[in-house]
């Protein structure tokens, strides 16, 4: 219970401070965010867009972990967890795509540029779509669980080519891409001002807790639904 209240307070603070803190070219006090040339007020997207993209990846990995667990133990609960994580991942994937696209229109001039990272989120959307089409195509529960687990693992081993490799070795618009003056590479060097950094990591933690909460709710609902079906 306590952690849910903590999460609520954390996310409220992130939203209020992330949108409300003033920006100035030469920050004097702790609560002033620096102005980044070329981004200005638009820099605030990092508090909301990056956590959603992070969650869509985290959910994807969670789904894969439970898929492996299912294949090892054949416990139906693991399949429920795997598909619950995938469902949430899909929601956050759509959110990351939409927030990114709207932002790109204002900062890069068009909604979609096929920047490597845009390609990778598009592929993630496709994978989620394919995963759910496969699930809806198989009626028998055990077969559905086994096949979708296998697919989720295969998709998860090929997706890193997009999520981690291509955005860094190809030129693109996102930070960390090849040709980025701040350094390209697997680890993007953090050049965030301290107050921004605090809000950013608070947001990451808050969103992750939100994910855990939603995940547990979904698993419980799915379990209840199944028990209801079993009763007839």
């Amino acid at each position: 219970m306590a952690w849910k209240i903590f999460m609520g307070v954390l996310l409220t603070l992130v939203i209020v401070l992330g949108i409300g803190l003033p920006m100035s070219p030469h920050p004097q006090t702790w609560y002033e965010l620096p102005v980044i040339p070329g981004l200005e007020e638009k820099a605030r997207i990092i508090f909301f867009h990056v956590p959603t993209a992070w969650l869509s990846t985290l959910a994807f990995l969670t789904s894969m972990a439970y898929a492996i667990q299912y294949l090892r133990k054949r416990d139906p609960l693991d399949d429920i967890k795997s598909s619950a994580a995938a469902g949430l991942g899909f929601v956050f994937c759509v959110l990351a795509t939409l927030t990114g696209a709207v932002w790109a229109k204002f900062n890069w001039g068009s909604y979609w540029n096929w920047d490597p990272r845009e390609t990778s989120i598009f592929v993630l959307l496709l994978i989620y779509g394919a995963y759910f089409s496969l699930r809806s195509a198989v009626e028998q529960e055990e077969k559905r669980a086994a096949l979708s687990s296998v697919y989720s693992i295969i998709a998860a081993v090929t997706a890193p080519f997009f999520i981690f490799i291509m955005p860094r070795i190809m030129t693109g618009l996102h930070p960390g891409a090849k040709g980025d003056p701040n350094g390209a590479g697997p680890v993007v060097e953090f050049k965030m001002a301290p107050p921004m950094r605090v809000i950013f990591f608070a947001s990451l933690i808050g969103f992750t807790l939100l994910f855990i909460w939603m995940f547990r709710l979904r698993v419980r609902t799915a379990q209840l639904e199944q028990a209801h079906h079993a009763k007839g």
């Binding site: 592929v123 496709l126 994978i127 779509g129 394919a130 089409s133 496969l134 195509a137 697919y151 295969i154 998709a155 090929t158 997706a159 080519f161 997009f162 291509m166």
Partner: peptide, 12 residues
């Protein structure tokens, strides 16, 4: 479903 499932895996 074949192309649907294959495409994301084959895209890289």
């Amino acid at each position: 479903l074949y192309p649907v499932l294959s495409f994301p895996v084959l895209l890289p």
